[in-house]
Amino acid sequence: MDEFFQQLINALVLGGIYALIAVGYTMVYGIIQLINFAHGEVFMLGAYFAFTLVTAFHLPFWAAVPISMILCAGFGLLMDYVAYRPIRNAPRLSALITAIGVSIALQNIARIIWGAKPRPFPSDSLPSFMRQLGQNETPEIYFSLLGIEFTQANISFSENVSIAYLDFFIILLAIILMVALNRLVTLTKIGKAMRACAQSRIAANLMGINTNRVIAVTFAIGSFLGAIAGVMVGVREYIEPTMGYYKGVAAFAAAVLGGIGNITGAMFGGLLIGFAEVFGAGYIPYGYGSGYRIAIAYIVMIIVILIRPTGLFGKSTGHRA
């Protein structure tokens, strides 16, 4: 049972990260029906930007992360302006091929600049609670409350179940950002404009909404959220040029599962894919689970597209694809 709870916590963390990336896919798809393949690369760049700011510019972590997020948001705007806006009215497959082209180009630019080797986030630049302890270090216990021990590195519920502060922070951050995004889309004027554009871009335009600006803002928000997810994955695991590709596909699967174009769906889809991946890797026997870990997202994605293309939360739009 201990293992189960530990996996549950891991799944929550992974799911939160996927949800943060998936909203970027789903928002763009909702408005311009484009699978923005390059979104995973923005996520990867977020991690690399923060890494560079910390190592080369010696900025403190708390300054590097917001700057990296803003840089990525700007990058999203640039991508939209340079690559996608000129072909807005071209056939949809042209846009998809462009997105793939942008994705490959960015991934290899990163490879040329930062090298192909996976790099850990430098641990001495991290705030103290995010640091992971070495194998032999026993964490110092600060205090315990109702049998829950708050130690130097984690909150420990029992001997084998604990949640690192970093993971706790990621879950908290994901929840806060998701709620904020939800408020933004439902309550503000720009959110209203986004929803209008998603329903019909032409009609929104006729109502005096500057659709190009709304699309640009969508790209910026998606990239902003993707960047923080990138930094968190970078801190928790490591940074490499292909991370955007693998995590991006899993997040895209999450967006499809939740019903592409649906923000709430993307959040739940992210959680579900996180659960499927962690529990699949943990409980499918004979080593198949870990070997096929990446494939789980692909399988879920294919099954959803074939059986229920509108996803779990999506409404049928009448036309498909």
Binding site: F252, I299, I302, R320
Partner: peptide, 25 residues
């Protein structure tokens, strides 16, 4: 057969990646 456009593209993509992972495993 009934899929068109980007949904078809995504399924084909997933299929090829799955095969590659299967061959590795």
């Amino acid at each position: 057969l009934r899929l068109t456009g980007d949904y078809f593209a995504i399924v084909t993509f997933g299929f090829a990646e799955f095969l590659r992972i299967a061959v590795k495993n």
